[in-house]
Amino acid sequence: MGKNFRDGVVIAGVAESEVGVLPHRTELQLHAQAASRALADAGMTLADVDGVLSIGSSRGTRMPSVQVAEYLGITPSFSDSSSLGGCSFEAYVQHAALAIDAGLCTTCLITYGSTQRSSGAGFGGGADPWLASTQFEGLWGLPMMTGAYALAASRHMHLYGTTREQLAEVAVAARKWAQLNPQAPRHEDLSIEDVLSAPMIATPLGKFDCCLVTDGGGAVVVTKADRARDLPRAPVWLWGSAETHTHASIANMPDLTVTPAAITGPAALKSAGVTPADMDLAMIYDSFTITALMSLEDLGFCGKGEGGAFVSDGRIAPGGDFAMNTQGGGLSYTHPGMYGIFLIVEAVRQIRGEAGARQVATDLALVHGTGGALSAGSTLILGKEARR
């Protein structure tokens, strides 16, 4: 294959901050803690960083990359705080690759921090009066974001016969993976019946169909590929990438059962020169059980309307034949408002063989983030070796 901008970069380091309930931490402290750990993982220091890409979940945080750079003492030559919601970080990897390829910088630090749980600030959307979701959805009592995803789930059930039991398979599988992750807060058993009998949040989504609400942060270091030989750990290569957004408010979603993954999945796979069947691991945003199920369809792992059957009978759980969300996902590991950075962290660890009891054989991984009310999507294809 011919060279493209993705061939010139690698992911050199990844890390999370503390995650959970963290009233003793500020948002900036979580950015900094994750950044320090990721740079240590990469064998680098702040002096190596000349690109900063940051976002947080607090509505009061303005100019996130500027604030993070100031806090860390970095004067970057490239900066980005584009907000695509939870998939911002997958998009940032692509943005970092473009900037490095263009010669704007050599090493990018992607960071995230959120005290959503402790501060009670949340990132649900619909609170600002100028938003369409406030004017035309919240006005009538639609609970955001759960209500938006509940509408999609209801439509999917109506069109394709998807059942609550099939959605519950996603939550149960996530919990089983979390039980293999010592950092996950939820290790208690969870059954299909537990999911079905849990309190309803927004029909048809119950308590366990919804992600956790936590504090936490993460960081990713992207650098020039020619530095790979000097890194303390094997680099992870960017094979493919794509991003898009189709709407902001759920009322303007072109089709309630077709997510932006239907655009970014095929585009990222094409740019990498691979197919869904080539993937050893799928890290797929699971803010809600329906998010993961519809994304699986749109990414090409199964046909539209076949997601329920695809995830059934423990297929995506440990021991199943489709490895997905191996650290427990947003449903059972952590979800501080935006989850996409944690998908990248786990994919890198799996590719490097550092996942411990949850390790699966992984040479190629697909990472897909979702943002907003099924509004935005970004997909990465990550590889153990350089793109052939």
Rank of each mutant, 00 (worst) to 15 (best):
W239R: 03
G240K: 08
G240M: 08
S241E: 07
S241F: 07
A242W: 00
A242P: 06
E243T: 15
E243D: 12
T244R: 09
T244L: 01
H247V: 11
I250F: 09
A251K: 14
N252H: 15
M253N: 14
M253A: 15
P254K: 11
D255A: 14
D255W: 09
D255Y: 12
D255V: 10
L256P: 11
L256I: 15
L256E: 09
T257L: 07
T257C: 07
V258M: 07
V258A: 07
P260I: 07
A261I: 09
A262G: 10
I263S: 11
T264C: 06
T264N: 01
T264L: 08
G265R: 04
A267R: 14
A268V: 07
A268W: 06
A268I: 09
L269K: 04
S271P: 15
A272T: 02
G273P: 13
V274N: 10
V274C: 14
T275Q: 14
P276T: 12
A277P: 15
A277Q: 14
A277W: 13
D278P: 08
M279C: 10
L281I: 07
I284R: 11
Y285V: 05
D286I: 04
D286L: 04
D286Q: 09
T289C: 03
I290Q: 01
T291G: 01
A292M: 11
A292F: 12
S295E: 14
S295K: 14
D298S: 05
L299Y: 05
G300C: 09
G300Y: 10
G300E: 11
F301H: 06
F301D: 02
C302F: 03
K304F: 11
K304N: 15
G307S: 00
G308N: 05
G308H: 02
A309H: 01
A309Q: 07
A309S: 10
A309M: 02
V311Y: 03
S312L: 03
S312I: 02
D313Q: 09
D313F: 00
R315F: 00
I316K: 01
A317F: 04
A317W: 00
P318M: 03
P318F: 02
G319Y: 05
G320D: 02
D321P: 05
F322M: 06
F322R: 09
A323G: 02
N325G: 02
T326P: 07
Q327P: 15
Q327C: 14
G328Y: 03
G328E: 04
G330M: 10
G330K: 12
L331P: 10
S332G: 08
S332D: 04
Y333D: 15
T334K: 12
H335R: 03
P336F: 00
P336M: 04
G337A: 06
G337W: 05
M338T: 13
F342S: 13
L343H: 08
L343R: 12
L343Y: 01
V345Q: 00
V345H: 01
E346F: 00
A347Q: 08
A347H: 13
A347N: 07
A347P: 12
V348A: 01
I351P: 09
R352E: 05
E354H: 08
E354W: 03
A355T: 13
G356P: 14
G356K: 10
A357I: 13
R358D: 00
R358Q: 05
Q359Y: 06
